[in-house]
């Protein structure tokens, strides 16, 4: 008998908690977003001219303004192209990675199947990078090239975890065969369109203790100084990834996303996750028409 009120109370509590849960499931979760700028249906790198307006300062890597590159105040307007070839031809850790990538690639592709798995025709690596990100029928999802390098290496019995140095080194080696060729992904239809739309939304979704979105830094306060760092435009960036960071770290794009997230007080996600891949698709579309250049470097 003494237990009855307790049981009543517990069942009452259960009802309250269940009702609260049902309400949670029925209503859209409250999230905040940074407002979109006009991206259009088929973005390209030069669209930056009507965004940050820096396009004219980085549209041609061979003809950057040296004074602008040397200026502490205006360097950000060159969008980190000043450490790309051909403007900067100096040797750095990115070249070392390219050599390492070649060595690994030759081991992996001894029987020719690695290249075929990645989508190369007759083993030709030229323009292979331009096929990514893609909807992959084998994996039944949109993937970046590094995810496929992991997958295809596994088929050859080698572990090349997405984001690891060796995976990224192979990516640099393969990407270099597309140097000078403009990125071109079609986000106007199919799974890439869906991925682009999801990536666009994620890029503007606020998260973390700061309540920042990617767009907080790269749209709202682009070009402003954040204690020694100045966020640059999100247009035209993808064409020089993977890159060698001058803190002596070879980084794939997703590894950089994890660092971006941490710097902004946002919990990072797994390398190769659908979320990071969708942001990669969104940003690749914003680099359309801009030519590939690796090995590259940046701070």
């Amino acid at each position: 008998m003494k237990l009855t009120p307790v049981a009543l109370l517990l069942s009452g509590l259960c009802a309250v908690s269940l009702a609260a849960h049902a309400q949670q499931a029925g209503e859209p979760v409250y999230r905040e977003y940074t407002g979109y700028i006009d991206y259009g249906k088929s973005p390209k790198a030069s669209d930056d001219a009507r965004h940050t307006g820096t396009w004219e300062h980085w549209k041609d890597r061979a003809k950057l303004d040296e004074k602008r590159v040397a200026s502490a105040e205006d360097q950000w307007t060159t969008n980190w192209k000043f450490m790309d070839p051909p403007f900067d031809g100096s040797l750095h850790g990115g070249h070392e990675a390219q050599d390492r990538g070649e060595e690994l690639y030759k081991q992996l592709n001894a029987n020719g199947r690695f290249a075929t798995c990645l989508g190369a025709k007759r083993g030709d690596l030229k323009s292979l990078r331009l096929q990514y990100p893609q909807y992959n029928r084998t994996l039944k999802r949109v993937v970046g090239m590094e995810q496929m390098i992991e997958h295809c290496a596994q088929q050859q019995g080698m572990k090349l975890e997405n984001g690891s140095y060796d995976n990224t080194a192979v990516s640099v080696y393969i990407t270099a065969f597309s140097n000078g060729m403009p990125l071109k992904i079609d986000v106007t239809r199919g799974p890439l369109k869906d991925s682009f739309e999801r990536g666009k939304k994620l890029f503007h979704t606020k998260a973390g203790w700061t309540n920042f979105s990617c767009a907080t830094c790269h749209v709202s306060i682009v070009g402003r100084s954040l204690r020694g760092q100045t966020p640059t435009t999100h247009y035209g960036d993808i064409a020089h990834w993977p890159t060698y960071r001058t803190k002596d770290e070879l980084q794939s794009l997703h590894v950089r996303f994890a660092e971006c997230n941490r710097n902004a007080g946002v919990q990072p996600l797994k390398i190769g996750s659908q979320e990071y891949t969708d942001i990669e698709v969104f940003m690749t579309a914003l680099s359309n028409d801009y030519p590939v250049a690796v090995p590259s470097a940046r701070d």
Binding site: A207, N261, G265, V266, Q267
Partner: peptide
Amino acid sequence: WPLPAKNMGELKWNDHRQDLSRWPTL
């Protein structure tokens, strides 16, 4: 957070300075 240690096919992991999973993520 992931550290791509040189000439390795696996990532190394470092600790962030605080638990960021307490706030909404992407």
